[in-house]
Design a protein around this nucleic acid. Structure first.
Lengths: 111, 111
DNA sequence: CATATATATGCATATATATGTATATACATA
DNA sequence: TATGTATATACATATATATGCATATATATG
């Protein structure tokens, strides 16, 4: 749901625009060059994905980011970290071989 | 591009299936319940997004994850971390007040 | 209350997307 | 070479999506 919401370029731009702080709808319209109705609909989708929240202020409606889904996204991507490191190892192997000579036998419990 | 690629539920499942290691197309077909042609097309899209790579092995084609876009995704989400922490501070405030009493004046350079 | 401002939504439409079926392509093997 | 296996792709189609326009709704202000 979050990936889908961020998958649209316009919505991504809106999220990036909200990065620096809360914004009224028309402020966002000025940034992304689509019609106001489109921005409102994108905001709706972002809201349904939990990525933004609204706060009325007079006749304006102030949108801001909700950290929760971003935190979850971070958790998800973090769960792949071992995978990156495993990949890096391929290239880091030679380097480690070098290091072994510097630090002869440093707790080598991995196969 | 990466968000869009991961935004489709089937492609997300394929990525998750590749998490544990490389897989031939038919292995993936067994996991996600769509037709083989669909899986091939999703793999194409994932490949265009840089998320997977292929390696031929006999008549099979072995797909595996490419760490690079995931690393970039991590970099992107990390750039929002200060934002999360700012939000967390609202709730962490009371806790910090408590801690202050335990550790009276610990280098309080923040405003 | 009339009018202006800010935002959301119904409608129409063009485009994108996901999917299955059938088929092409590539490789292996008898 | 003929056949089987594995995968990709052309085609058709149903559905989703993004967008603008017009309008409804809500709030502020004269």
């Amino acid at each position: 749901m979050v990936f889908h919401a961020l998958g649209d370029p316009m919505r991504f731009r809106i999220v990036e625009a909200l990065r620096t702080g809360e914004r009224a709808v028309n402020d966002l319209v000025d940034k992304v060059e689509i019609h106001q109705s489109g921005v409102s609909r994108h905001l709706r989708i972002l809201q349904e994905a939990g990525l933004v929240q609204v706060r009325p202020e007079g006749q304006k409606r102030i949108y801001s980011l909700r950290p929760e889904p971003l935190r979850e996204l971070n958790a998800w991507i973090t769960s792949y970290r071992h995978f990156w490191e495993a990949r890096l190892d391929r290239f880091a192997h030679a380097l480690k071989q070098k290091q072994k000579r510097q630090l002869p036998d440093k707790k080598e419990n991995s196969k």
